[in-house]
């Protein structure tokens, strides 16, 4: 009986390790769509256009991914189907975002109003089309070729780190992290990024220097569509596998929160997305984890939103939006 306590301690260490092997892959899985979509948000808001329509863009992406994966599977492309579908979703998202660009940049509609309408349109249009394509059914069939959770070769063999970070994960999660570093480079280290940011901070000054404000903002908005589309597609091919009314229920708004929580910075947005993914993973898996199972799940579910509000109040370092974010640019107006 004397070795009781040490045994117990051993069990606890084991359980912590086990907990991590459950939570970390789950975090990476739920965070990937958020990372892509919030990066889209970075592009549009850095160019000075608020896009509340990220939710709708994810919906369009998820819908496109479902339909095209099913089509490609049928055409016999097998495991490549979901990957090609993600590309289609990126294109569809970009085209759909063009509506927001035309209405809010060229027609000078209120950007929030246009974004709200975009969400409406996406929700209505995708389900309408699903009913058209699948003979009145309100949801698509399930895709058979998902992007599966796998053990990454070599890396998953590393002791301790391997099972936590590289087993039962999807490639899309690591792609998302890689892309956010790429986006950081584009926005902060290239001439294009400088122009994009200048248009979002002080469009009149940028215009004086010969930067085409309207064009840069169009690019920003379309890129948000591309990334939002990818985000929605990744959500579909890794998590839900079919598209219906409730497939994208708040993921886009959560990505918007991640964008703000990450202070409009690509790496910040990625970090925030990972954190929100962590909160979601906890809310799902907390029942299996000692101590956490006593905490009400509502705390985990609302944590991302409450924390975003707290960050915005400035208690944890002030979050400043780009100066001209949400302000239409009218040439010659001061």
């Amino acid at each position: 009986m004397g070795d009781g306590p040490s045994n117990e301690k051993g069990a606890q260490i084991m359980s912590l390790f086990e907990v991590l092997t459950i939570i970390v892959p789950s975090t990476l899985l739920t965070a990937a769509p958020l990372i892509f979509t919030s990066l889209g948000g970075v592009f549009t808001e850095r160019s000075g256009v608020v896009n509340i329509g990220l939710e709708g863009l994810m919906g369009v992406g998820a819908f496109t991914a479902a339909v095209s994966t099913l089509g490609l599977e049928h055409a016999g492309l097998g495991d490549a189907s979901p990957w090609i579908a993600i590309l289609f979703a990126a294109i569809a998202g970009g085209i759909f975002a063009l509506i927001h660009a035309v209405v809010s940049i060229t027609f000078r509609a209120d950007q929030t109003v246009s974004g709200v309408a975009l969400n409406f349109l996406a929700a209505g249009l995708t389900i309408f089309l699903v009913k058209m394509i699948y003979e009145g059914k309100g949801q698509t069939p399930y895709i058979t070729h998902n992007i599966d959770k796998i053990n990454i070769p070599l890396l998953s063999k590393i002791p301790v780190i391997g099972p936590i970070f590289f087993q039962q994960v999807t490639y899309t999660s690591y792609l998302a992290i890689f892309v956010s570093i790429l986006v950081w480079y584009i926005i902060f280290k290239t001439p294009f990024g400088l122009r994009l940011r200048s248009v979002g901070e002080h469009p009149a000054a940028a215009d004086t220097l010969g930067i085409n404000v309207i064009r840069m903002r169009y690019i920003g908005v379309v890129l948000s569509g591309v990334f939002g589309g990818i985000g929605g597609a990744v959500y579909l091919v890794t998590i839900t596998s079919n598209y219906n009314v409730s497939t994208i229920a708040g993921q886009g708004f959560l990505a918007l929160a991640a964008l703000v929580f990450g202070k409009w910075h690509p790496i910040g947005a990625m970090g925030a997305s990972l954190f929100f993914g962590f909160a979601q993973a906890l809310s799902i898996t907390s029942q299996q984890i000692p101590y956490l199972d006593r905490l009400p799940s509502v705390i985990m579910l609302t944590a991302p939103y409450v924390l975003t509000l707290i960050v915005l109040t400035g208690f944890v370092g002030r979050a400043e939006a780009p100066k001209a974010d949400g302000v239409p640019y009218i040439k010659g107006q001061r």
Binding site: I99, F107, A109, S114, A117, L118, F120, L121, L125, K131
Partner: peptide
């Protein structure tokens, strides 16, 4: 006609009202 068409119409109306300037 699927009832979602109504949602599409409402979305379009918001776009048009928002584009009142044009």
């Amino acid at each position: 006609v699927p009832v979602e068409l109504i949602q599409i119409i409402i979305a379009l109306i918001i776009f048009f009202v928002g584009s009142g300037y044009v």
